[in-house]
Design a protein around this nucleic acid. Structure first.
Length: 563
RNA sequence: GCGCCCAUAGCUCAAUUGGACAGAGCGUUUGACUACGAAUCAAAAGGCUGCAGGUUCGAGUCCUGCUGGGCGCACCA
């Protein structure tokens, strides 16, 4: 069914024929790589197989290409196969096959049309995982969207995905939040306090403290007790706020995993024992060290400090071990790119514990610079106007925010132009894509006014009825074939997104696809033609809209019918 | 000092596991609404892919060195 596979099969068959004729030795494996050429004049697909075989056969690529072409049985699929360049073989697929592929996608439905890459593999994708010590900022937002959309992509391509947020509720930072709240509380009680600089400065801490007093919530007179109590109190408050922010952003987690449970269930101790028993942890200077250097080019790292405290690294090893034990075959972590130095030791630990370092895939999220009036906005936790995710969301809306975060490779620095994101003009790519959907919707509304029953497409799809009464042979113009190819390309794009874990490819694809539509729209009239022509063009737009909507759905961006 | 990432049109960025003549959008210039939504389209101009070598049939992509930027090098998280 997939065009690319058909081409690959053809090449393989031709090579097999060559093998039986003794032109190609039997021991050579044929793994044809099929590419989509950038230039239309090079056809729909091309292969470099002649280059690959050249050194093995001790012939020049030119000759090999000619031999392969002469053995290709392509007339069912291609109108033309050409030798070009220094050894490329270019395939020009028959237009009628493109047209009928549209019908294939229609019959299968988009979901089944998409490639099955994951084959049911269980993947845990952990992202955001911000400490519950303050509200989410714009950088977290980027991670949230990339993670969420990546999860959608993997789900659509055959993975079983669980989205998880790791809450660091056991460390020093959460304790500091408790201390901070405690001091603010005392402050409001009228005591004079010396508020340390390294305590949380945000206004939200004061708000929590004020609320304690307002609601008359009793605070323990014992300082340590009080700090512990307030850490929990404020931590819970912050976490609730974080969840609300994420929901406003359209990001929902399947699971929130608390670091403290690792300690409570003894998983951390168990993991440390495991490492010790394998001889991969040793004591030095009264601390316990992990032999990172045994596995990666990295220094040995401390697991238990000389004061008996376990490091964050220790619980993180336990956490990832626990992930594996929950049966996940692929662990995807999204981190801020400033944590890149942490990758080797975590990989090493997975290697040490299970010999499975390759199961870890870390995706780094580069920083975001907010631009306002063309100038960067400060990102400090002090009360700058647009520093929190919530502020940005309120400013530009969910759709624009999500889309903008996906317009860059995640490990590339992103400039987020607030003014541009707010614009409802052609400069804003979000609207460009949404507008296409609204336009198609509008065409269908007008079609109904013309008395054309467009519900037949939808009805038939539900029944998976193959006998839809559309004459696709009418779709012959370059623009129409190009559009159909664009629709077909969705498969390749999703495959690429899933293979490379790069959601931004989908964003670029949608912009490009929709561009083809706008161009077509301006050139070709859909309605008020001879009825068969109108119907077939409506069908093309129907399929196109399905792809646009599916794409937007995966991005978590709405597809409004009117704008 | 050591390590990781980045450097592409005036600006912001793409470039299909190393593929063919490096592409979009914005901005600039010029055109298209008394026919389906002009939030659109058509066309033009714009480049030694930071610099210098190397590997290869082929390099923006891989290797080495240099320049300029970001980040990391804790018994922090």
């Amino acid at each position: 069914m997939m065009m690319r596979k058909k081409i690959a099969e053809m090449i393989r068959e031709a090579c097999e024929t060559c093998k039986t004729k003794g032109i190609i030795p039997h021991e050579i494996d044929i793994e044809p790589i099929i590419e989509t050429p950038r230039e239309v004049e090079f056809g729909d697909y091309s292969t470099n197989i002649a280059f690959i075989l050249a050194p093995k056969l001790r012939k020049n690529p030119f000759e090999i290409a000619e031999i392969i072409i002469s053995h290709l049985n392509y007339h069912d699929v291609c109108k033309k196969v050409e030798f070009a360049g220094k050894g490329f073989i270019n395939f020009f697929v028959k237009d009628e096959l493109w047209r009928s592929s549209l019908l294939d996608i229609y019959r299968y439905g988009i979901d089944d049309f998409l490639p099955d890459i994951g084959k049911g593999k269980k993947v845990l994708i952990e992202f955001v995982s911000a400490n519950p010590t303050g509200p989410l900022h714009i950088g977290h937002g980027r991670g949230a969207v990339v993670g969420d959309v990546l999860a959608n992509i993997l789900k659509s391509t055959g993975y079983k995905v669980v989205k998880e947020y790791y809450i660091n509720d056991a460390g020093k930072q959460i304790n500091t939040l408790g201390e901070s709240t405690y001091l603010r509380w005392k402050e409001l009680k009228g005591e004079s306090v010396d508020y340390p600089k390294d305590f949380y400065q945000g206004v939200y801490v004061k708000e929590f403290a004020a609320e304690l007093i307002e609601k008359n919530i009793p605070v323990s007179t014992e300082r340590l007790e009080a700090v512990k109590q307030l850490a929990e109190y404020s931590g819970g408050k912050v976490m609730k706020g974080i969840q609300e922010d994420l929901e406003g952003f359209g990001v929902y987690f399947d699971n929130y995993f608390r670091e403290s449970t690792l300690f409570e269930k003894g998983i951390v101790d168990e993991t440390l024992e495991l490492l010790k028993s394998k001889g991969l942890a040793y004591e030095k200077d009264e601390a316990l060290w992990f032999k990172t250097g045994l596995f990666e080019n990295d220094e040995d790292r401390v697991l238990v400090k000389s004061d008996g405290e376990k490091t964050y690294f220790a619980s993180d090893i336990a956490y990832h071990r626990h992930k594996l034990e929950r049966g996940f075959e692929l662990l995807i972590d999204l981190w801020g790119s400033d944590h890149h130095g942490y990758i080797p030791r975590l990989r090493a630990s997975l290697d040490a514990i299970a010999g499975k370092k390759d199961r870890l895939k870390v995706i780094l999220i580069q920083f975001v610079t907010l631009l306002k009036d063309g100038k960067p906005v400060g990102m400090s936790t002090r009360a700058g106007q647009f520093t929190t995710l919530k502020d940005v969301l309120g400013e530009v809306g969910k759709d624009a925010a999500r889309f903008f975060f996906l317009m860059r490779k995640s490990d590339a620095h992103l400039e987020f132009d607030l003014d541009l994101a707010k614009k409802t003009s052609n400069e804003n790519p979000v609207f460009y894509v949404q507008y296409a959907n609204a336009r198609i919707e509008s065409i269908f509304r007008n079609a109904e006014e013309d008395g054309i029953d467009t519900s037949i497409f939808i009805e038939n799809e539900k029944k998976r009825d193959a006998n839809i009464n559309v004459n696709l042979d009418i779709l012959t113009s370059d623009e129409e074939i190009t559009l159909i190819k664009g629709i077909h390309q969705f498969y390749d794009v999703m495959e690429g997104c899933a293979r490379t874990f790069e959601p931004h490819r989908l964003t670029f694809y949608l912009i490009e696809l929709v561009g083809r539509f706008h161009s077509y729209y301006n050139k070709t009239r859909v309605l008020k033609n001879e009825i068969d022509t109108t119907i077939s063009r409506l069908f093309l737009l129907f399929m196109l809209q399905k792809i646009i909507q599916k794409g937007l759905y995966i991005l978590g961006v709405s597809a409004p019918e009117r704008m």
